[in-house]
Amino acid sequence: MTAKISYDDVEVGTELPAQTFPVTRATLVQYAGASGDFNPIHWNEKFALEVGLPDVIAHGMFTMAEAIRVVTDWAGDPGAVVEYGVRFTKPVVVPNDDKGATIDVSAKVAAKLDDRQVRVDLLAKSGDQKVLGMSRAVVRLA
């Protein structure tokens, strides 16, 4: 494990570079295939409406995969992630147009732990909705 960020260079409150991730219906179909999650709420509008959703929604695990990129891009080595957990609070609603939706992710160092590890708290929003809660990663830095 070879993180490019040194533990000594970060403080509580250090912000990681924020990122915005686009998601369209095509993204969801591709993710369904890659992950094996073919639940129709992620690609079939008629089905989604029938089960009481506002529209097709993104896979929670897709949002989780995007959010950690803020941490792995910062740390350099994705293998530096020791723990990662989220709560799915609101769905990412993906309309059937060429723009789709966006997932905006920001993160900051919330605690410095033993063994050159830090806890990073993540904030993921789509529009003005917070889509992940209790979203935290523990990362081992250099």
């Binding site: 993204t27 897709f62 950690i68 080595d77 994705p78 293998g79």
Partner: peptide, 28 residues
């Protein structure tokens, strides 16, 4: 599928340079 171009996922040399035996998988 998640749009992640980190070379550790696709380039075994890049993964080895980070100390892994082969390409690694994204955390999720």
């Amino acid at each position: 599928a998640v749009g992640d171009a980190n070379p550790a996922y696709t380039d075994s040399e890049a993964a080895k340079a980070l100390g892994h035996p082969d390409v690694i998988a994204p955390p999720t």
